[in-house]
Computed example of a mutant assay.
Amino acid sequence: MEELRAREVALARDVDALTERVAMAFGGAPFAVMPIDGKGFGVVATRDLFIGERLLAETPLLVVPMDVSGYDGQRHGEYEGIPSALLEAAVDALPADRRCKFFELSQNSAYGVTRSPAGIAQTNGIPHTHGSKTYGAIYYTASRFNHSCDANACFRWNGSLGGAVGGAVPRWADGAGSGGQLTVHAIKRIPAGTEITFNYAGFLAPREARRRYLLESFGFECTCAKCAMSGPWSRSAVAESEARIAALGGTASLRASLQAELARQMAGEDSPAFALFEAAVARWS
């Protein structure tokens, strides 16, 4: 087991080195964080990006275990089932530089006018699994990527990459502190100057289901081109997309079968192959 782990770490380092060489060959840093009209901050490509390119590998500021029952902070003072007092203690325990970065992140007004750890966590948290448990991770850079139902990038947790992960409190450090990073890959060709986005709701959810989920889970009503039926997403184009989604038979069953097959072909948890899988799903929908 130790030998296998060492090989995984060595492979991850080789991938990182290759990614850096590719980035330099294509003109350096792939993106910049900047203000986006109506969205606060966002991430914009600084050069042309290609499908499968790794854009980011980032260690979380904070990781906390999640209760899949969801956020109910307005009534119970919780983030994903975690009492506010414990979440606040976890934030207070962060090193000063990481705590400052945490509070630089935005908070959706749906979670209160006064900024709080729970509101910031709900606005910016990205889920990932470790073993049999699900964790919410807050990132300084990855949390800046905005949503689009027609996203051009995807994220994936890679437990084989380096980087210490901060657990919420010591008794919750049951594997969450073993290291790992979130990786971001392009799933489309992204021209320089284009905003880079994630799909928070999944490509295979119908329009109304996506909008309802985004409003309930993240506190915003989606106005992307696909939801607004604007630009390339005319009413007829959206109708054709809905028909394709229905024909595919549902998100859960299709993703489960495709991901199971992909898992058999992948050496680790993260691979450009996953980005290509997301690219294929995006095209189908």
Results as ranks from 00 to 15, higher is better:
V43A: 06
E78V: 14
A12I: 14
E221A: 15
I51S: 08
C224F: 08
F220Y: 09
D97N: 06
R144H: 07
R264K: 13
I187V: 11
C222E: 13
P30R: 12
A57T: 06
E20R: 15
E240V: 02
A32K: 11
I51D: 09
G249L: 05
E240W: 02
E240G: 08
P83F: 01
G73F: 04
T197M: 09
E242Q: 14
Q122E: 11
T183C: 13
T134N: 05
G112S: 10
D97H: 14
C222D: 12
A121L: 13
G28V: 12
Q259N: 10
T197R: 15
K101N: 08
A164M: 10
F26Q: 15
G250D: 05
P65T: 04
F220K: 06
R54H: 00
R210F: 03
A280Y: 02
A243V: 12
R207D: 14
G119A: 06
H128L: 13
A93D: 13
D48L: 04
E208R: 11
P95V: 08
L61D: 00
G249M: 08
G179Y: 09
D92W: 05
A151N: 00
G163M: 04
A205W: 05
A279L: 04
P60S: 03
A205T: 03
H185C: 08
A205Q: 14
R13G: 13
G162L: 03
M66W: 08
G70Q: 03
Y213P: 01
D16P: 02
P272N: 03
A201Q: 07
A12M: 09
M1K: 07
A246D: 13
L105M: 10
H185Y: 12
R54G: 01
Q181L: 00
V33M: 14
T197N: 12
E80C: 13
S178W: 03
I245N: 00
C224Q: 05
G52C: 03
T19P: 00
F277P: 01
A176K: 02
S143P: 06
A209R: 11
F41Q: 14
G180E: 02
L262G: 02
F220E: 05
D150I: 01
L262P: 00
K101P: 03
N108D: 04
N158Y: 04
A89S: 09
V281K: 09
F145R: 01
E195Y: 04
A243C: 12
R5V: 14
A121F: 15
D72P: 00
A93R: 04
A260V: 01
S285H: 09
P127E: 11
A263V: 06
R115E: 11
P83H: 10
L258A: 10
C100H: 06
V91R: 05
